[in-house]
Amino acid sequence: MKKLMKGNDAVIHGALLGGCTHFFGYPITPASEIAHSAAYYFTKSGRTFLQAESEIAAINMILGSASAGARVMTSSSSPGVALMSECVSYIAGSNVPAVIIDVQRVGPGLGYIWPEQSDYNMVLKGGGHGVYRNIVFAPNSVQEMADFTYKAFEIADKYRMCVFILADAYIGQMMEPVSFPTKILHAKRKDWALYADEQSRHNLVTSLFMEREILSANIDSLLNKYAKVEKEITEFEETSVSDAEHIFIAFGISSRVALTAVRELRKQGIKVGLFRPKTLFPFPNKRLAELASKVKSMMVVELNDGMMANDVELAVKSKLPVRKFNWYGGYVPSVTELVEKTKKSI
């Protein structure tokens, strides 16, 4: 039977079922319920929960624990994720798997605790220094909070990458019925990790390479890996796209508003559809390029100043107008607002 749960609570169920054994975190609204849930369930089940002294410490504990072969995670919200960014770069450079839940809130600075999607650039384009990428899932329901977290650990282990679940305050705070898999996954022994035994004694986890050839070869191997990831795990969802003249492109909470707007506009005889990237890296460039020759315009609905719209523009290469429908400062548009804006634009 499905359980009515908060997105933030469903994450911890998904994580434990996905084989996560270690949680290191630091509280922050609107992500704190994840830590609360972890404190209860990780501790009770004999896994490890540790409230670190800061986000910086938490993410470095992740680096250590993941290097010791465990499936590990942390959760935070935008300012906390910004603090973690230094070590996320180390995690990428060292080819270490980790899972981070970012329940986005309004910035810049302290901003407030309401939803925004303005971590897009930080999580997708860097945040930390250097040439690297994170795999980024964008859940738009409590079910996806559970599902993405469940499979995030397998994916992180497979590619030895940091997997972000990029949620927002509404997806984290809302409750919906959710079901869970009953098969518990487990980490397998990793030939690169440190297990404090003879077999792994020669292993070294590092992002430091003091010869140019080795250093650039490491970056090349990262880029090859990212190309593979782009080929293998891109996910998206299309709603009413097949006969659409215009399509919304949205992720997370924005895509929920857009879905209702699609229904409303279709009632009024306007043929719109919704294209929803479930992965932001890898980004569904190929499918967007195909759709660019099938529809008249794309309307990117985001709670920021058009960060994903820039990626859509790159994907469609000026074949059609890409409209930026942006809200920020904690606003989530009403369906009426989005419908009116759409009718004015097309």
């Binding site: 270690h22 490890t48 540790l50 670190a52 470095n60 992740i62 624990s65 072969g69 590990v72």
Partner: peptide, 9 residues
């Protein structure tokens, strides 16, 4: 902090 992560694992 890194050492904590290892030691706890």
């Amino acid at each position: 902090a890194v050492a904590t992560g290892i030691s706890r694992t």
